[in-house]
Amino acid sequence: MNQVFLIARRELFAYLRSPLGAVIIAGALLMDGLLFYVQGLTEKLVSAEVLQRFIYNATAATMICGLLLSMRLLAEERQTKTLVLLNTSPLKDWQIVLGKYISAMIVMCVLTACTAYLPALILVNGKVSLGHVLVGYSGLLLLGSASVAIGLFGSALAASQIVAAIISAIILGSLLLLWMAAKAVDPPLNRFLSALALHHDNFRPFMLGRLELGSIAYYVAMTYLFLLASIKVLEARRWR
């Protein structure tokens, strides 16, 4: 695991030394702040509804930032030819992928923590439970984790960051829109598609403050699936 944390630390330095990390965090905070004001403070709502709307709206910034944070992780290394250093060091491919994933998730956690002042305002001025806030944030982190994994998979496939972002956005967009596709088909296919959708049915419990095992398992499985796919892409490239 030492090698994993070594790679994660190097990536964290890269986020800190380039404006990328700060710009992404600032952009997410601006987006969350504006949506909080427009959707939560411009009409009369009970505190729980304001919190639900905040958590719902924050998913947009979480997913976009997940992709932006992860698009560079492997594609940039391939672009600048530095992946050779990792490929020719005594490392397993899973160590490379996990190290990169952890670094992006640390930034994602910092980003998510930075938005905590908004639910804190609701907690202080309204009547919501801390549990609801914590469950909502767990959902955001799980969704962020799946987004980072999808972005990392796109980054493993592509040779440039832009292409990586496009591939990841298409995958993420398709998974998001599955709930719409579910509406257009008959049972039991609609239930199957709905269960696969990245947001909607799987995120709603977190938004409402309910911790459901099925939803947690879904996001963990999506993260695992896309990280595994990224590892397999790296392995396949050595044989190509």
């Binding site: 030819k81 990792l86 060091s89």
Partner: peptide, 24 residues
Amino acid sequence: PDRPPLYEDMSVVEYLAFAARLRR
């Protein structure tokens, strides 16, 4: 390799220490 795999945002000693740790 024909193009050295260098991280431009690291100093020389930081990079060499990173490479050394990667290689156990």
